[in-house]
């Protein structure tokens, strides 16, 4: 695949005109359906009773928190190697969204941990590595905005995002490498999921919904940024 086919902002805007509303409506439909199935129709857990419903927000946001970091790291590599103009903008557009998902994951996890573990927070490997991920997002945003030259901010940020990628496998495998209070993975595992299908379906819907929401909001942010640049370029070229 030739990456430079997508480097043209005009072509991106043409594609985005289709993708953005599509992703937006998929997000609305699946999030509504997932919420109804997850919060009302799915059964309470035999051990955790109603608190299990927090999972329908917690797991998708954790998944998206990691996915958006991986996507940012790939885009950062593309931006550094091929000087792809849209890749830098993607990293910048996705960072606050990923940070939001990470925060949502930590907060919902905390609400779940209070009744289940009896503590708002435990210093377990999964929770700690997720907190580090939040700091990486925040650090990227602070660094990218710390330079007068915008390009320099993008490139410095890209190097930081690539360095921080070491945290992603630590988050992913923390529940296997250490004896954590956080339970091990129960959906994507060898030998199939260990979660009841009445709960797996709403969870799947929510994951699709969260992903579609991510695509939608990143596309909107990218379009806005490109239009912003167009306006600025036009203003600079207009004789006073």
């Amino acid at each position: 695949m030739n990456l430079h086919r997508f480097a043209n902002p005009a072509r991106f805007l043409r594609i985005a005109r289709v993708v953005t509303p599509l992703a937006g409506w998929i997000a609305v439909a699946t999030l509504l359906a997932g919420a109804v199935f997850g919060l009302v129709l799915s059964p309470p857990d035999y051990q955790q009773s109603e608190t299990v419903r927090i999972m329908y927000v917690h797991v998708p946001s954790a998944w998206l928190a990691l996915q958006s970091y991986i996507a940012m790291a790939l885009a950062a590599a593309v931006a550094l190697v091929w000087k792809h103009p849209l890749a830098d903008l993607f990293v910048k557009a996705a960072a606050p969204v990923g940070a939001g998902f990470t925060l949502l994951c930590l907060i919902t996890g905390s609400f779940w941990g209070r009744p289940t573990w009896g503590a708002w927070w435990v210093w377990d490997a999964r929770l700690t590595s997720m907190l580090v991920l939040l700091f990486l997002y925040v650090g990227y945003m602070a660094l990218a905005g710390a330079f007068d030259d915008e390009e320099r901010g993008h490139r410095a940020g890209a190097v930081l995002v690539l360095t921080g990628i070491v945290d992603v496998p630590i988050v992913k495998f923390s529940v296997e490498w250490w004896n954590t209070l956080h339970q091990p993975t129960s959906v994507f595992r060898l030998g199939g999921p260990t979660i009841a299908s009445e709960m797996l379906w709403p969870l799947g819907l929510m994951v699709v919904g969260f992903t579609a929401f991510f695509v939608w909001i990143v596309c909107v942010r990218l379009e806005t940024e490109l239009l912003h640049r167009k306006i600025r370029a036009r203003l600079e070229n207009t004789p006073a």
Binding site: F135, L136, G139, A142, L160, T163, G164
Partner: peptide, 9 residues
Amino acid sequence: LLALLVLPL
């Protein structure tokens, strides 16, 4: 900024 970037690592 340096503290924010380096301490998590």
